[in-house]
Amino acid sequence: MTNRIDTRLADLRKQGRAAFVTFLMAGDPDPATSLAIVEALPEAGADIIEIGMPFTDPMADGPAIQAAGLRALKGGMTLRKTLDLVRGFRAGDDHTPIVLMGYYNPIYIYGVETFLADAKAAGVDGLIIVDLPPEEDEELCLPAMAAGLNFIRLATPTTDDKRLPAVLANTSGFVYYVSITGITGAAAANAARVGEAVARIKRHTRLPVCVGFGIRTPDAARDIAGAADGAVVGTALVEALAKSLDAGSRATPATVKAVADLTASLAQGVRAAARAAG
């Protein structure tokens, strides 16, 4: 089945460059600003947009993304409103892939089948659910694939060759390689080691491999983009957003621009990469 993610990654492959994947939290700091930010991302150079689904207990996230989730929840964000955000974005952009990323409980409480139908209808293309390893595929992964959504799996430095086939078995869209053992925003990724890991994963799959965690600057984005099919940046964008807020954590006239500007400079980094992965 062809979908926006496959199409976009195939196009970029033809252009000979890696994808730039951005992550921001839905509803951070409020639903209207969040929509304006997401709408500004494609023009600023984002190829694939990941949108975080806020959760009170984000066990794999560092302080910046934890705070973003809490700001969004404080602003009244819910999973239903996250789908509204995607629908709002889709009204003006039918091409840029949207991937929702987060934790399972809000989806489980929404109801898996209803959620998948509503997400598909809203224009969501894929899901990344941090706390659903292959051992729990029956929960959401298999139903999501049946509903025509990509289920993008995280592979990590601890996912060895013995385990990779299990991790890749029901993965689609792309593989998200977590470049460090750790939480989001913690440490910097080493491009050489990332290159080896990407090569190792590619021995097991033909899916594109995008790399995230620890990429904060245009130079780092360039290095990683040279070693993989895509580079994901989250914490740095979330921090730029946070820095633009007023003392009460409310959006200011500078907020959308702060995120768009950093997106543009990171995108330049990605586009400057010598294409290595293939």
Partner: peptide
């Protein structure tokens, strides 16, 4: 076993 892949192995 609802945990991040990093912990699964």
């Amino acid at each position: 076993r609802f945990v991040a892949e990093t912990l699964m192995p």
